[in-house]
Amino acid sequence: MAAVSFRDVRKSYTAELQVIHGVSMEIEDGEFIVILGPSGCGKSTLLRMVAGLETISAGEIAIGGRVVNNLEPKDRDIAMVFQNYALYPHMSVYDNMAYGLRIRGLSKEEISVRVQKAADILELEKFLERKPRALSGGQRQRVAMGRAIVREPQVFLFDEPLSNLDAKLRVQMRAELQALHRRLGTTSLFVTHDQVEAMTLAQRMIVMNAGRAEQIGAPLEIYAKPATTFVAGFIGSPPMNLIPSKREGRDALLGVRPEHLAPCGRGEAMMTVDVDLIEPLGSDTLVYGHLGANGAGARVAVRLHQSVDARAGHLAVRYDPAQAHWFDPASGKRIEQ
């Protein structure tokens, strides 16, 4: 267990191609951090820089107070779980987990103890002699985690480990990961593009876009106060509505989350939505539509708790100004009120 520090970390592949633009963050010992962002935002690169699989062009990464820029992966005391599990196909589950330990010269007994312990935690006892190709996706994922656990490293690194699992399994694994973290308490960095995973697993998140850390904070903080239009649009499903408007005489973007738009009578309406599509989900109903000309035809989504009459072509809504967010259209940054 250890703290991890990013100090103005940058990466370029060539002089022209810079992919990480100065990320800084202090991660405390034992924290579960999620690095969230869309494809190509640099989140995996950032993680691999911590692992030592990518070089660091500028800045420093420190683990447990030790700068690791020039250390080989095996000397950084980290363990990584890959998206495709990266299990050694020709070895049994036991040997997969024992591989790293054998290299480090642990005794047979010690190895056996550690592997058994991990197998217990992950419910893999019955599969120790099997080869990966005889396991299901979920079991393979657990073996990959087991391989990381037995190393008892200072930091766990997860590179989109749940992306290859089906929806139901993903939910189950999320719960198991949380339980695991509670039990072991190891500092963890978890990369994902799925904001639901991020929101449920993270103690704090880094939201990344095009190589920059757009916002760092706890999930609910970020949800309640997105720092940029990108973050606002990325977190929440459906994403926050961004409506061109004017504020104090200048152009601005008004942000209101779909669940904060309440249907109202014509008289109280702050906006009128021309309904395009209604999605009844059972628990909620999603209404997709667009605003009229004075709202510049912006697309809007509304989350309602009741069913809506499909024949109604318009929906009048209002919102609590306290739930409104304002963004500068040019920079995308939040305008504080």
Partner: peptide, 17 residues
């Protein structure tokens, strides 16, 4: 897959191993 080699590297295996 490259990830296998990377996993082995993280596990502590040098190029020969």
């Amino acid at each position: 897959p490259k990830s296998l080699i990377e996993a082995a590297a993280i596990d502590g295996a040098g190029p020969a191993r």
